[in-house]
């Protein structure tokens, strides 16, 4: 890893990080404060009136506890899609815009191997995602304690977030791989963004009806099951698969970047 480059990365990433973290904070606070017996009932009524729509977003089982409620309304869709958008933006900042416009030439015209440079950029992305996951975990715990002291099962909530980080390691790895495979911006971002959207759509469709249920085998999002995590079920093999898959995607990206012809 290269220190000077990493410092530069931090300077370029903090703004999008802050914006997305602020948006996520807002959602977390709003959703948690909606956990209220009477409001919950009206939400349940709404859900019953349009079950397909709610289940498309993974919100088909609000459950009884605060954790079930959070897992249902936050971890089924919002905390998957919003960070994914941020990851795509960050990959653009760290890799694609340098490659597309040619500024990468300056980084490569230094006594650092391509592998080292790509590794540094990957490390910056993983760090940004990790810090965000830690942050939203903290916000969740603090706000739940303030609003409903003692209601949140903190142990399982942490487990849920360990799973979420696994998923985002995988998704950000996918975006990163795109930037290593393609030099042109639209293909590089199209790869990660396109597959990400496809995976989310597959999951939504698979949750709606039985005809499309097979689609869940075509999306890695299935490996992250927030409700099962919230119930404390043994799902660590699928979480482990996400971590290993994510690490592999980053590794493959760095490997290809080291070998690729670059027109800079």
């Amino acid at each position: 890893m290269h220190k000077a480059l990493f410092c530069r990365d931090v300077q370029t990433l903090w703004k999008p990080w802050l914006i997305f973290s602020a948006i996520l904070t807002m959602y977390i606070v709003v959703i948690i404060s909606m956990f209220d017996p009477s409001l919950g009932e009206s939400l349940n009524l709404m859900m019953e009136s349009m079950p397909e729509l709610f289940s498309a977003f993974g919100m088909n089982n609000p459950g009884a506890t605060l954790l079930d409620f959070i897992a249902n309304y936050l971890y089924g869709f919002l905390l998957i899609c919003l960070p994914l958008v941020m990851e795509l933006i960050m990959v653009n900042i760290l890799m694609t815009r340098y490659l597309d416009r040619g500024a990468m030439a300056w980084l490569l015209a230094s006594p650092n191997s391509r592998t080292k440079i790509a590794f540094t950029q990957a490390a910056a992305l993983v760090a940004a995602v990790l810090v965000q996951m830690a942050y939203i975990t903290a916000v969740g715990i603090v706000f739940a304690q303030i609003s409903f002291g003692g209601e949140l099962d903190i142990g399982r909530f942490l487990y849920l977030n360990v799973g979420l980080f696994g998923l985002h390691l995988f998704l950000s790895g996918l975006c990163f791989l795109g930037s290593c495979l393609f030099q042109e911006g639209r293909y590089a971002l199209g790869f990660g963004g396109g597959l990400g959207i496809l995976f989310v759509l597959f999951q939504m469709l698979s949750q709606v009806g039985e005809e499309a249920e097979f689609l869940k085998y075509l999306t890695p999002l299935t490996l992250f099951d927030p409700k099962a995590l919230a119930m404390g079920e043994t799902v660590w093999p699928s979480i482990l698969a996400l971590y290993l898959g994510g690490a592999a995607l980053y590794g493959i990206g760095i490997f290809f970047f080291g070998k690729k012809d670059l027109s800079l």
């Binding site: 290269h2 220190k3 000077a4 480059l5 410092c7 530069r8 370029t12 340098y98 416009r101 040619g102 500024a103 030439a105 300056w106 980084l107 015209a109 230094s110 006594p111 650092n112 800079l264």
Partner: peptide, 25 residues
């Protein structure tokens, strides 16, 4: 090395860029 087509990091100040390159080297 001086590239023929200058693609610099437009968001930086000249000073910041020079420091980054010095750091890279």
């Amino acid at each position: 090395y001086l590239p023929g087509e200058l693609a610099l990091m437009e968001d930086m100040s000249g000073e910041g860029f020079l420091k980054l390159i010095a750091g890279m080297k």
